[in-house]
Amino acid sequence: MTGKGWSSTLEGFRGALLGCGDDDLLLCERTGESDPFEAFAGRFPHRYVQGGFSEAELVLTALGLALADFRTVVASTASFLVGKAYDQIRHGVALPRLPLCLAGTGSGLCLGEEGAPSQMLEDLTLMRALPGMTVLVPCDGPSASALTLAACRADGPVYLRLSHQPRPVLYGDDDGPFTPGEGRLLREGREVTLCACGVMVHEALKAAEILSQQGLSPEVIDCYSVKPLPEQLILSSVRRTGCCVVAEEHGSSGGLSGALAEMLSQRYPVPLRFVTVGERFGQSGTTANLQEYYGLTYKEIVGAAAQAWAMRRR
């Protein structure tokens, strides 16, 4: 899984849109967006719309375009898209189950220096709580690209969480479909299940290397579909391992860890440990420093895996 270069999920998303020749697919960005998708606007001026000044206006404009039967993708900084436009998303998009793709760029801690307001660590919670909303968190360029196209074909609303952070490319172009409700088994093991999404998938793989050297054989799942969860994949893994660690670049309530806890506690209770930011807001700093400070590295996953394994009932 090396030698394929690096890319960010934002690049994957943008590549998918550029490569998609569907005239009915529109991209809607906020007027005054700091990082507009100029290549798309230049190549497809008739498919690019500068929506409102605020995220609320942006979502309303996109929603109106969707009512004129356009497949519409809305892209803006996750924190403001989810935070400022929650009312519009709830009443205008989720309630009538409109097929609209909400792409939260600059998610998690990736806008490091911009500080807490730009670092939403509860977006998965908020979006996951809306009935009928699909929530996807890709971990590399190719999976982001495939999931973008899946989101544009979905028959209901989708929240796609994207990051500017370049990460090693895990998947090839011929790695099969990425489908909402599915996940990927990246590494097989017997003793602990590591479930992760987004940038934390890469940390989980690093942790797995170290754990296996220490004699604990971990299974790694790329859980890119936070909602619906790939239940069968997760259940078949924890039935074998008997314990699970969840890692996400997110707060401790209601994200991927919350989703797994809800599902496993009812279907197959096993010891769980979470690697998250916890009950904290972000702050200014480089993304790498923040990830270290908030405990979002392979080291925490290694520790959590050892704890989860020790908690197994024998």
Binding site: L60, L63, L67, H91
Partner: peptide, 24 residues
């Protein structure tokens, strides 16, 4: 023709819808 559950939403949706219909 449009979902307006929360007050103040209508005109923003109308903008997008009119724009979409213009483009069609």
């Amino acid at each position: 023709d449009a979902p307006t559950g929360s007050s103040g939403m209508g005109l923003g949706i109308a903008n997008g819808l009119a724009l979409g219909l213009n483009r069609r």
